[in-house]
Amino acid sequence: MIEEVTLTIDDVLVKAVKGISVLDAAVKSGICIPHLCHVPFLSDIGACRLCIVENVNNGKAKITTSCTLRVQEGMVIRANSEKVLKLRKNIAELLVAHAPNSRAIQDIAVRCGLKEVRYPFHNANCVLCGRCVRYCSEMWQGNAIGFVGRGKDRHVEYPFGKRPDTCKKCNSCVLYCPMSVTPCGEVMKTGEEHLCGKCDSQMAMAEKIPGACVWCETGKSFQCARYA
C-alpha cells in the first residue's frame, strides 16, 4: 500500500508519495524548481544549491535544498518566493560566471532570470555537480572517479590520475556532464565569455511564471526530473 502525504508548495496543495523529496513532488506537479546536481535515480548531495526552498515551520522559514528534504504531512514550502528567487539567481550567477561554456548552465541562468553577471568570467570546465561521480559509483560500482582535494582545489579525478581497471568505459560520466553540451553558437574563448541571453522567450517566461514548468529544452536534454 503506497502511503501518501499532502503538503503545500507555493500555495498549492500537492499529494506526494511518502518518502520522496520535495523537489520530486514539486516537479511532478508542474512546479518548477531549477536544479543541476539532482538526477532522478541517483542519490542527492545538495551540492549545487539551486533547488533551495523555504520550509515554513511555526511561522519560521528555513532555507534548505528541496532535493534533500523529504515530504511530510502538512509541510508548507515556498519554492518561488521573492527571497528564494533572488538567492537562486545569485547562485546561478556564481555558476555561469565560473563555467559559461555550458548550455545547461546558461539555460539555468536564464530560467533563474539572470540578466547581468557582476563578476569577471572564469572559464572552468567543471562545476563539481558530481553527476559523473555518483553515476559511476552508484550505477556501476565503478568508483573510477571521485572528488579529490578540498576547497578551491577540489576536482574530479581518477585515483592517482590514472584510469583504473574498475572503469567500464560506459561513457555515462560524459553523457551526464552539464559541460558536455556547449552553448548555442560557438564555444566561448577565454576573454570572450558572456551571458548567452539569446532566449528572449525563456527570459519572459522566467519573469512572468517563474514557478511553472514550461517543459523547457534544458530539461529535456538534461535529465530534469520532469522528464523522468
Binding site: S137, A144, G146, F147, V148, R150, Y158, P159
Partner: peptide, 10 residues
C-alpha cells in the same frame, strides 16, 4: 582505492 586516495588528499 578511490576512497583511500580521496582521504589521503583531503
Amino acid at each position: 582505492l578511490m576512497e583511500v586516495f580521496r582521504v589521503a588528499k583531503f
